[in-house]
């Protein structure tokens, strides 16, 4: 899995691609925690190019969601159809704010 970090104004963007599975979970968990701790409470996790996620990856997303709630801040997910299907299957769509593409996610934060 490849992880890229970008910034758009005060919005942190983490773009993931490939398979997001148990082996990647500790590294992504650490990076997201650091970004949430140091950031402005605005985070987009872009998984548009992710081809598969497993339960450990979902657990990482939940950890990030909980950390963002404590901060408090806002976490927006951008999902590929495969990721979206797995998120819906496990009812996680009831807690995550999910948008179809990165521009829509940035717009949700009021970015131009």
């Amino acid at each position: 899995m490849v992880m890229n970090e970008q910034k758009h104004g005060d919005i942190d963007i983490v773009a993931l691609s490939g398979r997001f599975v148990m082996a990647d979970a500790p590294e992504v968990r650490e990076r997201l925690k650091a970004l949430i701790d140091d950031g402005q409470g605005k985070l987009v996790i872009d998984m548009d190019q992710v081809s598969f996620i497993d339960s450990s990856a979902c657990a990482v997303l939940i950890s990030a969601f909980k950390a963002m709630q404590l901060k408090p801040g806002r976490l927006v997910l951008v999902t590929s159809p495969v990721v979206q299907a797995l998120i819906e299957l496990t009812r996680l769509h009831t807690i995550f704010e999910i948008l179809p593409a990165r521009p829509a996610a940035l717009e949700a934060f009021g970015a131009p």
């Binding site: 979970a25 497993d54 339960s55 450990s56 979902c58 657990a59 939940i62 950890s63 909980k66 299957l89 496990t90 009812r91």
Partner: peptide, 15 residues
């Protein structure tokens, strides 16, 4: 492992 990892593993099992 964190509790949510165990919970998600069980969710995936059931799904």
């Amino acid at each position: 492992a964190p509790d949510e990892e165990k919970l998600m593993s069980d969710s995936f099992y059931w799904a």
